[in-house]
Amino acid sequence: MSLWEYANPVKFMALSGRILPWTAALSAICLVVGLIWGFFFTPDDFRQGSTVKIIYLHVPSALMAINVWFMMLVTSLIWIIRRHHVSALAAKAAAPIGVVMTLIALITGAIWGQPMWGTWWVWDPRLTSFLILFLFYLGYIALWSAIEDNDTAADLTSILCLVGSVFAVLSRYAVNFWNQGLHQGASLSLDKEKNVADVFYQPLLVCIAGFVLLFVALMLLRTRTEIRARRTKALLARERMA
């Protein structure tokens, strides 16, 4: 029994079919509880007023935007090294979700920035590197959709993902060098005693869990769709041959 068994599409379909409703339901519960808790049952911040509540969308989506790319990097590596088709399809399925997460983070950030910093957009390192990440996602998706042959597309996009990751990290540090920012540093980290005041922190954790589960559910759903599309294509091809 190893993880690699699920590289078999039949086994993957069986397992993901069983998990999918649970993750979807759990994500819905977490998001509903977390967002309602965050929006209506936390006090206003004494300086930021009620605008602080956008944190419940901004932080989880920003977190996911980066981690989705990381997941694509891992699945691309698995495709390059072990050539499991499910892995390549999972990377393909994850990219549009990542783009939407990046967009949510950018837009909620702009909405938050307007009352707080008095501007919708500044060329701050964090904002800029997110914009660059957005461009990387766009290029990745465009390359997938431009190539007809599935295996070629999987190969090319996974190499692009590897090279892109290196350059994304480079850009991250390059923009730090290029401009000083308004955005605060990392507020959440695992090794800190206290991150954000507890009243805000607890609903935020629920929201983050909700976003992670939402991503897993969407990713499973989209990967299943891709596998089914691939099967349909194969069946059609067989039909034509006969």
């Binding site: 461009l135 290029g139 692009l160 350059f167 994304a168 850009s171 390059a174």
Partner: peptide, 15 residues
């Protein structure tokens, strides 16, 4: 497509 792929990669060099 080539420009869409290459321009983000040019960012650190340009900076």
């Amino acid at each position: 497509l080539l420009s869409l792929l290459v321009l983000p990669l040019y960012v650190p060099t340009l900076i």
